[in-house]
Amino acid sequence: MAIRAVVFDFGGVLFDWNPQHLYRKLIADEHERQWFLDTICTQAWNTEQDAGRPLAEATQVLTDQFPHHKALITAYYERWHEMLRGPLPEGVAILKALDAANMPLFGLTNWSAETFPYAQANYPFLRCFRDIVVSGELKLIKPNPAIYDASLRQVRAYLPDIKPGEVVFIDDVADNVDAAVSLGWRGIHHVSAEHTAARLRELGVGF
């Protein structure tokens, strides 16, 4: 079955996003910094915002719980753009090559609805996508099967007769890829741009 559309995850594939990029500026000691990110502003807490919780509410929850760390907690979203170091050039090169080959491209990202507009405004390569599903806008998050259903509906707005097996999903989180595969999609676990490019070619995608 030929691949007729490619769906990209963003963080770790196209974007270098990491709270460490900001907190290295705020907490000099490596162990103290890691404790803060493992204990207070955790990835699980951030995921709640990717699933639709308002940033102000999320910040208030933590500042109430950890008032002595209020300044560091508040910085997380006030200076969020400093965590987004920028594009991952090799991943973006694959995206642009597929776009130049006229492959229909779509996005499926776990991302807060409040911070995603910054990326849209500052990274023109996102215009390669025909459409993008943002978890925070839907209040659904990968690997929930419902968000893949929403993505496939989006693809079908452009390619009405496309089948799940004609879509390939690229993500750096194996569980997210497995969820897509369980729904009949083709999947690529992104561990490097070279690996992803090779897998795309194995699937018959020319670019």
Rank of each mutant, 00 (worst) to 15 (best):
R79S: 11
I94T: 07
L138M: 09
D171Q: 12
R186H: 15
P145Y: 00
M83A: 14
V168A: 05
Q49G: 05
R85D: 05
K25Q: 13
L26R: 13
D64L: 07
S192L: 03
D50P: 11
R201V: 07
Q34K: 15
F66Y: 15
V181R: 05
P104F: 12
L152N: 04
T109I: 05
I94C: 11
R33I: 11
I162V: 15
F66H: 15
T63F: 02
T63D: 07
Q120S: 10
L126F: 15
A101Y: 06
K96T: 10
P117Y: 01
G184P: 01
V134P: 01
Y158F: 15
V181Y: 00
Y118W: 14
C41Q: 00
Q49L: 12
L200F: 08
W111I: 04
P124M: 03
T109V: 13
L152R: 06
E32D: 11
A93N: 14
L88M: 13
A150D: 04
K163A: 14
E48S: 14
E114L: 04
H69T: 08
V155A: 08
A93Y: 01
Y76C: 08
D16A: 13
N18A: 10
H68A: 14
A193K: 01
P160T: 04
L26H: 08
G52E: 13
E166N: 07
L37E: 06
L72A: 07
I73Q: 01
L26D: 07
S192Y: 00
L140M: 13
E194C: 05
V181E: 06
T74L: 09
I3L: 08
P143V: 10
A197V: 00
Q20F: 01
G184A: 11
G204K: 10
L95G: 10
N46K: 03
A121W: 00
N110L: 12
G91C: 10
I3V: 15
A121Q: 14
M1C: 07
H195E: 13
E90V: 03
H31W: 03
S112L: 00
T109L: 11
L140E: 05
V61W: 04
I162S: 00
E32Y: 02
G204W: 11
Q60A: 14
Q43G: 11
F116I: 09
V177R: 08
A193N: 10
L26T: 03
A198P: 04
G206L: 12
Y158E: 03
Q34L: 14
G136T: 04
D131F: 08
A157T: 10
R130I: 02
G204F: 09
E166Q: 14
Q49N: 08
T196E: 04
R186P: 01
F106Y: 14
N102W: 02
P145S: 08
M83I: 09
P104V: 11
T39N: 15
T196C: 14
V177C: 12
D172M: 10
I170D: 06
K70I: 06
F207S: 02
P124K: 08
A100Q: 14
F10Y: 13
F8Q: 00
P67S: 12
H31D: 11
Y118G: 09
D29S: 09
W111Y: 12
R186Y: 13
A157L: 09
G107W: 08
L55S: 12
C128Q: 04
T59S: 05
F66M: 07
V133N: 00
P145G: 07
Q34W: 01
A193T: 09
R156D: 08
L98M: 06
F8W: 02
F15D: 04
A146G: 06
F8S: 04
Y118N: 05
L126H: 05
